[in-house]
Design a protein around this nucleic acid. Structure first.
Lengths: 220, 220
DNA sequence: TACGGCATACTTCCATACAAGTCAAGGCGC
DNA sequence: GCGCCTTGACTTGTATGGAAGTATGCCGTA
């Protein structure tokens, strides 16, 4: 029995497209074609088609029978729902961490990484460090799986974040992370929850501006 | 342009299998076969295969290349993560509803429906009413989309619930719903949150017993 | 009896062909 | 010029055949 299974080509196509959508390389509303992509990657339509199906299952694409496949637009209401879920979950996680007071060096490390990325203008590194900060908090709370359970919701928010990086200076984001970490280190559950909620509510002010700047990328 | 698109056969196969898995009709660990299912429903392997891919994307099945497709076992850690997320989210929703004090007749109606289903021993109706109660709370909070965003997590919990229905009397569940509704009607946010969290923590005591009763259906 | 090697029947994966529906452009009639 | 219809080039959906890999049972051998 093999332990490391060979990755199927359909899987590779899926991962490639998935990354393109999240990075904004394939913008919302873009039209896809099974045969066109198949020709690009030198495969038949079938594996590409299966990648499309998985993208649609992720809520990142929409397959219209006999009409075409399109990259899904960003639903502002879906973003607001996802944000609400994240706020509720991370608020609870913050309380747990503040009470348990585990080792938090991982969070400190991600803040520093984010500082460097911000200074260097390295957008992918900044986003990765941001992700890892929140993931580290879930791990510190003893529930690492929670973070991956929210993968589907984060995908939508990641697309938004790539756009936001072009319009907002993220120095404030780092300051908010520092505030969260300070409250966690102090073991102050109330302050940690408040700082976390305030951080995630930042999106409420940014979302309308991004949606106004790229109206063709959004739906209600 | 058609507004009501005809449902593809692959979609129908997916929905059928999805229902079978959630109802426990296809138990965890069960082996599936593209050709076997295709023969049963009178189709070729392709639509069945695509249904398998979607099931795997939902975390309900596992496709092992050249080896077979199996209904996923229920991960106790995944259930605990999903439960934690639901508790955090519904606690926040309960606070919102308690503060906004909207019309709550929908919640009352679902409690009564659940009462009838419990008395009649109608398991599917009971589960449906349970779902609708929580969904109604999300709607009352003004965020109906939140409930559907958690669909993927609820799928795992629904499988568990079908097993739990055979081992636990659900009268207590209804009483907990009544307690939540009473707190909401009183506009007491703290009490509503506490009642909601207590209700969802019920699973923490039931899960180990179910997992012990059906060890072959669970993994860590 | 115990064990190793092989044949065989499975599985999923990919390629190809065809079917059915959609959309747009162009020609025709008015 | 304007409107309607037809035609054709697309799209995704389904069926089928073969390729590659896996597991299993059987048989021969020690």
């Amino acid at each position: 029995m093999r332990l490391t299974r060979p990755i199927s080509t359909a899987q590779q196509v899926y991962e490639w497209l998935h990354g393109c959508v999240l990075r904004g390389d394939l913008p919302p509303g873009a039209r896809l074609s099974e045969s066109e992509i198949a020709q690009q990657v030198g495969l038949s339509r079938q594996p590409v088609r299966e990648a499309f199906i998985r993208l649609a299952a992720d809520g990142l694409a929409e397959v219209l029978p006999q009409r075409g496949t399109y990259i899904g637009r960003i639903s502002t209401s879906a973003i607001l729902s996802a944000r609400l879920i994240r706020e509720a979950v991370e608020a609870d996680l913050a309380r747990m961490v503040a009470r348990a007071r585990p080792d938090l060096s991982a969070l400190q490390a991600q803040i520093e990484a984010q500082d460097h990325a911000h200074a260097a203008g390295d957008v992918p590194a900044f986003i990765q460090a941001d992700d890892l900060f929140h993931r580290a908090m879930a791990e510190a709370a003893g529930h690492p799986a929670v973070w991956s359970d929210l993968e589907r919701l984060k995908a939508q928010m990641n697309r938004l974040r790539h756009m936001a990086m072009r319009h907002f200076d993220r120095a404030e984001t780092i300051a908010q992370h520092r505030a969260i970490l300070a409250a966690l280190l102090a073991g102050d559950a109330d302050a940690a929850e408040a700082a976390t909620r305030a951080h995630l509510r930042q999106m409420l002010t940014e979302l309308p501006q991004i949606a106004a700047a790229y109206p063709e990328y959004f739906t209600t």
